[in-house]
Design a protein around this nucleic acid. Structure first.
Lengths: 331, 331
DNA sequence: TTGAAAGCGGTACCAG
DNA sequence: CTGGTACCGCTTTCAA
């Protein structure tokens, strides 16, 4: 194969004497081309080193076999392993994924959606920023099949795969309460994010069930970007709030909090209890252990499954949120 | 904008009375279209909700404004943050990235390269599996601009951005030697990976410089996939090898090793010294600390920079490996 | 079973 | 400054 030269159907046609039409259909193994011909053409194609042009093919067929995955930050392990699983599953089905990071910014998310639309992706998997509802409404209007993951909108009907975050919050706080803690700090993400509200709701529920009043000052809402929870815990230290345990919004935040506590108040809080979410220890072995809530199903696979059906119009269900069950891991 | 209906140049032409040609050029702000006309057309486009079709545009122009990033595993934090930085830099320049995981498998890597080629990407950033040289030779033959990242081939000329891994290995082992250690275990990746050989070479150099003989039995070569270093350290424990320090191939592996030691030999090795590579603590705050070697430059940006130049034919240099300087971080 | 011809939606090139 | 037209490479449709 000559360096840099692209082989097209036309080249194969020239070599074999068939028309490009026949070549095209033969290479897709259509049965209306005789077996013999298909074989010849396949061989010729291989010899020439033919590789199809998906731009041309997409243009005509309207399908790109591409899916956009729009998430907060790929360097966040939670998203990283989500994307990895999505990629593997999609690859198996012959799909390629393009990645967009929103950095949790609404405008970036909008740009990502537009770019995906312009690239004519067949489907979108989105972990929405949720600061506003504009983007999701816009996306709905585009008519591209999509599913949300990790977060959902309470007042907009659309397919979403999320954890049962209320239960998750309840498990985390409930565990700490079970240990005898009463002053449990909650450091969590913004309330416009569904998991933000839901986990906090779970925290409240656990208190209520155990007859423990919630001290509103114990509830700290932060960004979910790196460094934010460190700030939050420092503020708590400055206020000398008396807490004996913490519910953190994610393992990453929990680590950050532990790190900060160790650095700034080593002695006082060395025996603090902490519980959080994501169970990243399931993914990487870390020599620091605390209870973490995880999902008992593989959310990536559920996403891919539903999106596939939507893309192929086998999805007759109306848009709905699918809550996946959670459990606590501590070993 | 009507739901699901795609607006094309033709629609704008119909609305404004210009030809699609004029529309196309106006929307790209070509100065040969009068300012007035450009403004009218831009407004009409906006009103109709026009979004270009990149498949069509790519087909004709030959450019996709897409770059493929082919790496081992996106859920590995090292790759995750690499990809994040690449994505941000590329996005800024109007490029989109598609992700392929090789899982460190040669065949997957080949498939990824083929898929990228078929999608007519403008460029490729690749962290090669290196098990064989077939894929890189194949890639070179395709004529797509590409750069390697993290690993290079000693006997194949191609652009690569890598750490100075010999120095890195020397720093890690040298540090431990400086602490007075003599029996330093080395747990590292396969030797067919350039960083595998180079870091080990650095380990040897450090010994040599300090007049300490290298015990070959202290050198353990493993996979770089999760779980492998855990296996390796267990084997070492079974052999009752007397070691007092460890050089681990990555922070992730170091954590895995510490985790395993704590689990299986808590008392005996609680004061072990360990040094490794990647400095992931720079990216996530983890409450466990040990020295780690990091790169003093942002490799992603260097990659993007060089690839951009190659894609735009501003790259007259001949293929070369670019070694980035490293340092030890411990605080 | 195969071929001919018409696009898909843009961009490039040349003419006016 | 704007229009006409060919064409990128493949798929679709219809005819033979």
């Amino acid at each position: 194969m000559e360096r840099g030269k692209r082989i097209t159907l036309k080249d194969i046609a020239a070599k074999t004497g068939y028309t490009i039409n026949t070549i095209s259909r033969a290479l897709k193994d259509k049965t209306d081309i005789s077996f013999e011909t298909r074989k010849n053409i396949r061989e010729a194609a291989k010899e020439l080193g033919y590789v199809g042009d998906s731009a041309a093919s997409s243009l005509r067929s309207g399908k790109t076999r591409t899916v956009a995955v729009i998430i907060g930050d790929i360097s966040n392990l939670f998203f990283g392993s989500l994307v990895r699983d999505i990629e593997l599953a999609m690859q198996e089905k012959g799909y390629t994924i393009i990645i967009y990071s929103t950095g949790e910014h609404t405008e970036w998310e909008r740009k990502a959606i537009l770019s995906a639309y312009s690239r004519r992706v067949d489907g979108i998997i989105l972990c929405p920023v949720q600061e506003t509802r504009d983007n999701i409404l816009f996306l709905q209007n585009l008519g591209i099949p999509f599913v949300l993951v990790g977060r959902y909108f309470k007042d907009i009907q659309s397919d979403a795969i999320v954890w049962d975050d209320v239960k998750a919050g309840e498990l985390a706080a409930g565990y700490l309460i079970g240990l005898g803690h009463v002053n449990i700090l909650y450091i969590g993400g913004p309330l416009y994010i569904s998991s933000g509200t839901d986990r906090l709701q779970g925290y409240r529920n656990a208190h209520k069930k155990n007859g423990i009043p919630v001290n509103e000052n114990m509830i700290r809402i932060t960004n979910i970007t790196a460094g934010a929870s460190s700030e939050a815990i420092l503020q708590v230290l400055r206020e000398s709030l008396p807490f004996t345990a913490i519910v953190a919004f994610s393992d990453l935040m929990a680590y950050e909090i532990l790190y900060t506590l160790e650095k700034h108040a080593k002695n006082r809080y060395s025996h603090i209890s902490i519980a959080s979410f994501d169970d990243i220890r399931e993914k990487i072995m870390l020599p620091v252990n605390f209870p973490s809530i995880r999902c008992i199903e593989n959310e990536s696979l559920v996403c891919v499954d539903i999106l596939m059906q939507k893309m192929h119009n086998n999805w007759k269900n109306k848009p709905a949120v699918r809550f996946l069950d959670v459990e606590m891991r501590y070993s």
